[in-house]
Amino acid sequence: MTTARDLGARLRHLRKARQLTLSGLASLSGVAVSTISKIENGALSPTLDRVLRLAEGLDLTIGQLIGDAESGNDSPNSRFVPSRHGDGIVIDTRNYVYRYLCAELTNKRMVPIHARIKASSIKEFGQLEKHGGEEFLIVMDGEIVVHSEFYAPVTLKRGESIYLDSTMGHAYVSAGDRDAEVFCICTEPQRIERTDEVQPPQPG
């Protein structure tokens, strides 16, 4: 299991490898300097929206940020990775316990997450979260309430699901007397190709 300290050490390594200061990464990601510092020191487990924003700031996919290595076999014919019970990278936050599955694939177009929902009310959850991409969630056990920025709350029971735009503020809270279990698939935010208007001369 990946701890907050493990993830923090990896984030610091990736930031320094790109010769970025804390303020530089904060500017690129939109995550506060103090928050990045806490994550790097293992004092804070980042929520999914912060993981995605930090990955985008580092010009990485989420798999490259939380995975075991930056490189991998990206041949289309090699993308066949079973995930066994207990596999994945676990990050325990205030509201959710995330288990990122198939994390060894670093350039996935979607992020599969098995999660346990800890918050039992929107007041306990706090501010709605938002990040790039879209997501699909299905309730595997228990009952949840989906709160969002633009729609009335929706209650989902076991076997029921929802699809939403992740750039809209949203929160999942458990509606029963125990933590709910869900499976979620998030798409990576669309990455904009960075090209210069004037291409440099090519050799030859």
Rank of each mutant, 00 (worst) to 15 (best):
E135F: 14
L44K: 09
Y151S: 09
S78H: 12
R5V: 15
V90Y: 01
G67T: 05
V198D: 07
D68R: 06
H170W: 10
L60G: 09
F125Y: 14
T195E: 13
V154T: 07
R5P: 00
S71N: 09
P189W: 08
E135W: 11
I89R: 15
R194A: 11
P112K: 03
Y98T: 01
R18A: 07
F125A: 02
T195P: 07
S78A: 15
S71M: 06
S29L: 03
S120I: 11
G133Q: 13
A69E: 13
F150A: 13
S120F: 12
H147N: 04
G63T: 00
E129S: 15
S75N: 13
Y163R: 15
Y172A: 02
S71C: 08
A103R: 14
I144A: 00
T167F: 02
N107D: 10
T3V: 02
P189D: 08
I39V: 14
A26D: 10
A4E: 07
I89L: 09
V154K: 08
A55G: 09
E193M: 08
G142H: 06
K157Q: 11
A32D: 14
V51T: 06
I36D: 05
T93I: 00
P203R: 06
G169T: 04
S83G: 04
K123G: 07
F136H: 13
T3W: 01
A103L: 10
D165F: 01
T2S: 12
Y96D: 06
G24Y: 08
D165E: 08
F125V: 02
G67P: 04
E143G: 02
I192L: 15
R116F: 03
I36A: 05
Y96W: 08
R79N: 07
L105H: 10
C186Q: 02
K108Q: 12
P200W: 07
D6G: 00
T106M: 11
G8W: 09
G133P: 13
P203W: 10
L14M: 00
S121I: 02
L20Y: 08
S29E: 06
G88K: 00
S83L: 06
G30P: 03
S34T: 11
T93R: 01
A4W: 01
H147I: 01
Q190K: 13
H131R: 04
T155P: 02
G57N: 05
L48P: 10
F125Q: 07
A152Y: 12
L128Y: 04
M1C: 05
P112C: 05
L52R: 07
G169D: 01
H147R: 01
S83Y: 01
Q199M: 14
M110H: 12
H114C: 09
P46Y: 09
I138V: 15
G86D: 08
K118M: 01
D92Q: 04
G132L: 12
S174N: 11
M168R: 09
H170G: 10
G72F: 09
K130L: 07
C186Y: 06
T93A: 00
R158D: 05
Y98Q: 03
T106V: 14
V81I: 15
A55P: 13
H85R: 15
D92S: 05
Q127K: 14
F125R: 03
E149K: 10
L25M: 05
E197F: 15
G67R: 09
F80L: 10
